[in-house]
């Protein structure tokens, strides 16, 4: 092999691997990403049942019902609309009624989300960013007030 052929074969190999990587990324980006919705988004644009969603909002007051074996049902609200969520597992330590939450799971034909992951605030400073943005959009954001209270 001449030096030129050698170089071409390396460039070809590199191009091949990169092409495979790009192909994999594009394929995965079309099928494996999860969109974020608020209950109002769902009300405005119906989602196909079976779609994976991240649902964000506040846990509606009085909506949390504990079932057997760690089953929980609650509603997520953005004060305009509500979406019901069922979940089996341990809720985060800071999961509370009236607090921000993100539930990730499958949207079903009954308009409910079967969550396999529920995220709440990490601590009093943390609000899932999508929820904060969605609540700001709805005009019910109180985060700035909270931080103002904390300042000595």
């Amino acid at each position: 092999m001449t030096r030129k052929q050698r170089r071409l074969s390396f460039i070809g190999a590199a191009g091949g691997v990169l092409a495979v990587a790009v192909g994999l990324v594009l394929y995965a980006l079309t099928g494996q990403i999860v969109f974020f919705y608020t209950p109002s988004d769902i009300a405005a644009h119906p989602i196909a049942p079976g779609t994976r969603v991240r649902l964000g909002g506040l846990v509606e007051d009085g909506s949390v019902q504990h079932g057997d074996n760690g089953r929980v049902a609650f509603s997520v609200t953005d004060t305009q609309h509500q979406t019901k969520v069922t979940y089996t597992g341990l809720l985060p330590d800071l999961f509370r009624e009236g607090q921000g939450v993100v539930a990730e799971g499958v949207y079903d034909a009954n308009g409910m989300v079967t969550a396999d992951n529920v995220l709440a605030k990490h601590d009093e400073k943390y609000m899932p960013p999508e929820v904060a943005a969605a609540l700001k959009k709805q005009g019910v954001w109180e985060g700035d007030k909270q931080t103002a209270e904390k300042t000595p």
């Binding site: 995965a28 980006l29 494996q32 990403i33 999860v34 969109f35 974020f36 991240r54 990730e104 999508e130 943005a133």
Partner: peptide, 8 residues
Amino acid sequence: KISVGSPF
């Protein structure tokens, strides 16, 4: 807003 998780 999207999330890219382990399936990706």
